[in-house]
Write a protein that binds this DNA or RNA. Structure first.
Lengths: 237, 237
DNA sequence: CCGATGCTTCGGTGCCCGCCGAAGGATGGC
DNA sequence: GCCATCCTTCGGCGGGCACCGAAGCATCGG
């Protein structure tokens, strides 16, 4: 008569996949959108390879991860954008408490502040860079936030002018808000967010720093962003 | 250096709260947006009151539920719309498999088909009714889905004309998609969805059936919906 | 080929937690 | 005041699962 018959067990199983600190650590790491090897994740999470192997088995069986075997390496990544969205969303709910608790004790502030400046969040840009882009798009009437989160017609034109092709046929929404857990504000995700991120990396507007998901805006990027969206380069530093 | 320091334990704890079939059952039941007593939930979930009491303790401590004590009754409800959204989202991910498995075995089809026709989903309308409203709003240019999910200026005017006041100051988005797990399509949630649902109940467009969250469109409702949005009454039956 | 590397499988251990029933407040009705 | 109802607390039980190390299997490099 109610949801019990079907949804509840599935819901519990899905949540159970995330309800382990080691697996949660993996999922958050994989939010950078890239594929990690099993060994990298094991070292990252601080557990034995054998332990992590079992975790990966569960996550893949549960549909959260996709795997790809190459030689003796097992590469895994988040199965799709929906899963990434899910993890982001859950992590966003956590941030309010965790961030407050974490703030006074931050240690390696260099890497952290680089992350705060700009980073990828699965397949789009986050951090102050992501916010700056979102604000600039909104300020120029290309993106609406007041009545929802959607590109305007002018926004569609802007993407076209810059030379970014948007896949309008995808079932994924063109524009979607993603809560940023350093800035605590939504930034642009969805097809448009992903395309913008890809373009920014392809065109050399920004480059990845080190092996983490932090990104840095290049001098050309500053010029391009200033010209295309009127973003003050100083806001990105 | 990564998310491990702070987010991962919180994420695992949050997911852990949902990762139990009994608790999941409660959360799904509470998606109707109303307050349930501990005893009702215990019977609903099929466990001893003592067991459920502990579950409620966890859920409240974890911030997922809000409680209100009235005499010897303990009423609980979802803490806020964000939590409801979270549970909806997770349940939406589950549906693809669970629904397929469930379809051939449905037993009490009366109650289920009533739910499929129309129901509340936390604080907005879902089921075929919710889809019909969303489609009608979209078809009339009041709601855009192609570039995101947002009310248009005409949509703002429509709400005003119908006499539905929208709280523009809330941090909650005006329009937000919520995945319907009987229809598998997004319907209108957010401030506008909640206001529309409240208005529909207040104005007698529809009434709740029984103690579940199913709703039925009244004859006046059919007239009003036909007039205000051009919805064919037959589509709601 | 042979060793090094990456991953998986398999016991074994220990902890966590969901469950119940019994007993103990607390509240409301009579 | 007394009993019924609702909820909570407390042992105790049982199952599930996260973890490790050792052994085994594939792959890659010399």
């Amino acid at each position: 008569m109610t949801d019990r018959d079907g949804t509840a067990p599935g819901l519990a199983r899905l949540a159970g996949l995330i309800a382990d600190e080691t697996r949660a650590t993996c999922l958050l790491a994989l939010l950078d959108g890239r594929a990690w090897t099993a060994g990298e994740l094991a070292r990252h999470a601080g557990v034995a390879p054998s332990t992590l192997s079992e975790h990966l088995g569960r996550l893949v069986a549960g549909g959260l991860l996709a795997e790809e075997r190459q030689g003796r390496h097992r590469y895994v990544r988040l199965a799709d954008a929906r899963i990434a969205h899910l993890v982001e969303d859950l992590a966003g709910q956590v941030a309010p408490q965790a961030a407050a608790r974490r703030a006074p004790t931050l240690g390696a502030s260099g890497a952290r502040s680089a992350m705060a400046r700009g980073r990828t969040c699965y397949d789009h840009l986050a951090g102050r860079l992501g916010i700056a882009l979102t604000d600039a798009l909104t300020g120029r009437g290309l993106l609406r936030q007041d009545t929802g989160f959607a590109l305007t017609d002018a926004g569609l034109g802007w993407f076209d002018d810059v030379g970014i092709r948007l896949d309008r046929t995808s079932r994924r929404p063109l524009a979607r808000p993603c809560l940023d857990w350093t800035e605590r504000r939504p930034h642009l995700a969805g097809v448009a967010g992903a395309a913008l991120c890809r373009h920014a990396l392809d065109a050399g507007w920004c480059v990845r720093i080190g092996s983490q998901r932090a990104v840095k805006v290049t001098p050309e990027g500053e010029r391009a962003l200033s010209e295309a969206l009127g973003i003050d380069p100083a806001a990105l530093r």
